[in-house]
Write a protein that binds this DNA or RNA. Structure first.
Lengths: 130, 130
DNA sequence: TTAACTGCAAATCCTTTGCAAATCA
DNA sequence: TGATTTGCAAAGGATTTGCAGTTAA
């Protein structure tokens, strides 16, 4: 059993959940459920794909990880919880995190201009890495 | 046969394709493939869902319509071809087009700041319609 | 003890595809 | 006529779910 049993608020501890969270956090990519499954299997060979999906959803709902879906329609997960955006290279398909804070007052301007009450936004940039 | 046979460049005319395009253009929502299918069926009862998908993909690849994918993972289509963004109401799930041009030089600033060569971007705002 | 969690497998949902028939040019 | 496009049905991939057994608290 691992040293640090990081519990999700109001949830029971489970080794599988901890591993899913660890894998997503340590990934330097933006992994799919299937990739997470393969990684977790290295530590817990009897884990099931269903369990991985259940925990990814739970962790995302609790805000411990983020869902990322791009134009290809496959759900990906991101261990970063800070607000950030993405750059997607059209050639390689690689996804880069971008901590880009150019439009500080974007939300305010948007709400003022449109009359909506937006509370968050996300930007995806597409192009080539050069 | 309709009056105006709008042909897609380098493609043969087909009644089914024309109807798919018409339905997407006239939709004031951001319809899913299934919704488009149901609409086209009113005019062409024997159309198949496969044909609708094939034409949606073809039209999107040709740039006559746009693909829109949000966090729910279902592909939607948009008859607007001008660059624009979306506001999604968390309560109703409704998707609004936003022609919002606040950060004119966003791409330039982004490229200068990150070193990438982004050619386009899209913004999704989330919140409530109030 | 018992509610939460799991593995397994089947089900579901969305989308694509193979093929023979139909159709546009 | 010949290459596209279609309808149909089956296959595909990603994700969810039902259930009986397991486990944390």
């Amino acid at each position: 059993m691992p040293e640090t049993r990081e519990k999700v608020a109001g949830r029971r501890y489970s080794r599988q959940r901890e591993e899913v969270l660890r894998v997503v956090r340590n990934a330097n990519s933006h992994p799919t459920a299937d990739w997470v499954y393969e990684q977790v299997r290295k530590t817990l060979p009897r884990v099931s794909l269903g369990t991985v999906y259940r925990n990814l959803n739970l962790l995302a709902d609790e805000g411990l990880i983020q869902r990322v879906i791009l134009d290809d329609g496959v759900m990906r997960y991101d261990g970063k919880t800070r607000a950030h955006h993405h750059f997607i290279c059209s050639k390689t398909g690689k996804i880069y995190d971008v901590e880009f804070n150019l439009c500080e007052d974007l939300l305010e301007k948007f709400n003022a201009q449109t009359g909506f009450k937006a509370t968050r936004y996300k930007i995806e940039f597409y192009g080539s890495e050069e």
